[in-house]
Design a protein around this nucleic acid. Structure first.
Lengths: 160, 160, 160, 160
DNA sequence: TTTT
DNA sequence: TTTT
């Protein structure tokens, strides 16, 4: 049963996030993220392939996305792969794959127009899972308001 | 332009790998890999959701998959997300997402029937990129035969 | 300011975890974890190098470690690097590096003697950060008791 | 034996890289990299803790580091943990932990003075292991000259 | 279609 | 001090 489903992406937003505020106040944001790789083709010419990822963020992270993350910017995303299935109009089973992000860190990049969100981090951590990058990261909290992490609860780590 | 597209999975094979040997001797193997997560639903009941990932491995790793990896087994996969697009019979653009693995490590698990592949690692590394787990990993070499890693080429790393 | 500090390890415990229960009921467990890599030396001989990592786990994960994780077993660890500094008896500044784990998943392996802990996962998630592997993982909760994840709070993810 | 030792860091260089060119033309570069996390202490005050990582890069990546990476800049590092042991002057066994990077991607940041290296990627891949981010990444090649990746050797990935 |  |  041991199971791990982890994705790490650094890429640029193809569009501003689309945010919905659901009944109950839960926010969800979606945006396309591009990663590119280059390679030499058989003629030795440099080629580029761009991969588009459908990013989904929930709750606090969605609000961060709404306020601070814009088309063109570079973000670090940590999350998991999720493939939804649905029936198309002909009743054929179709699949749609997205990345549910539970950690998003802004890396700067080239936001277009308007205000610069800059490079920074928003939110904090409800779990030590991402505590490794707390300030730097806007980590997704499941349970509504962000819960401050009290690191000092960890007593002195003497080498033992 | 800075771009990272990295996936780490631990899961079980839903089927034996399907292997094709292409013109030129290149092998490609595909198999479905399940990861599951559990959660409590609103009634507090434990629920499970299984995610199916389409894994693709090339060359040496495909040969390892063919020989040693079976339905039911647990593997560690490191790779990248790739979404292919194609037209369906009605000319509608469709997408199919797969994980191109460049590192695969067997973790054991419960192979069904026959020979036990056991837990181990096959192949070795052409790049230090995965050298962190060389023996343990069957890392995909792009360029045909596996190239042994000569670690001792790294002179003494004295603290400096 | 954007900052990420993430470690992913799969290895075997060199000893049973040492667990301390602190004032306030907080538990902390420590154990050495071995990862090995193999390589060919300049004579083409297969060599192995073992790396020892000092793993630290807190709270619920420490209790899981205490109960279920034994010398010899294989575990998946996700965490962050932490280097503590201290003065040695001569007043010289020394450093000690450890991995603070916030996700630990048992992969089986060969526990010695006694009861088999088997491969499985214990605990669940307070944050979606590791929700990707909830059942499979014993994720560390900072705030005491594990908080069940209510996935169904995420409404239908229709492709939009 | 299955074993994984993987580190992912995003942080800023504390100093310019120190580069040595070894007999045989092999280059090695070292630099300190800072990651920081913030947390609230028991008085609810925002605190920051900075972690310093000793990064080591070899060969082509070292040359990239020498030319393009400067103090203050932000980089993405992927590598493995390595702890070297040595005897101090009193014959006491001491340990020194470093991160051997096999993938380094520049994220921009704030280089001080002089030329701006900007955000970009240098070098290319000898293994598909990091092919996921080829252009974006300067991946470390063990075997001297970088070997171009011929992606088009991977025939059409039709969904099958 | 896997696993617990 | 683990594992293969």
């Amino acid at each position: 049963m041991a199971s791990i489903n982890k994705v790490i992406l650094i890429g640029n937003l193809g569009k501003d996030p689309e945010v919905r505020h659901l009944e109950g106040g839960v926010a969800v944001a979606r945006f396309p993220l591009a990663t590119s790789e280059t390679f030499k083709d058989k003629n030795g010419e440099r080629q580029e392939r761009t991969e588009w990822h459908n990013i989904v963020v929930w709750r606090g992270l969605a609000e961060v996305a709404e306020k601070y993350v814009k088309k063109g910017q570079s973000v670090y995303i940590e999350g998991r792969i999720r493939t939804n299935s649905y029936q198309d109009k002909d009743g054929v089973q179709r699949y749609s794959t997205e990345i549910v992000a539970d950690n998003m860190t802004m890396l700067g990049g080239r936001p277009e127009g308007g205000a610069q969100a800059g490079s920074g981090n928003y939110g904090n951590e409800a779990s030590s899972g991402s505590a490794s990058n707390s300030n730097a990261a806007a980590s997704q909290s499941k349970g509504g308001a962000a819960k401050p992490v009290a690191y000092e609860e960890e007593p002195d780590d003497l080498p033992f």
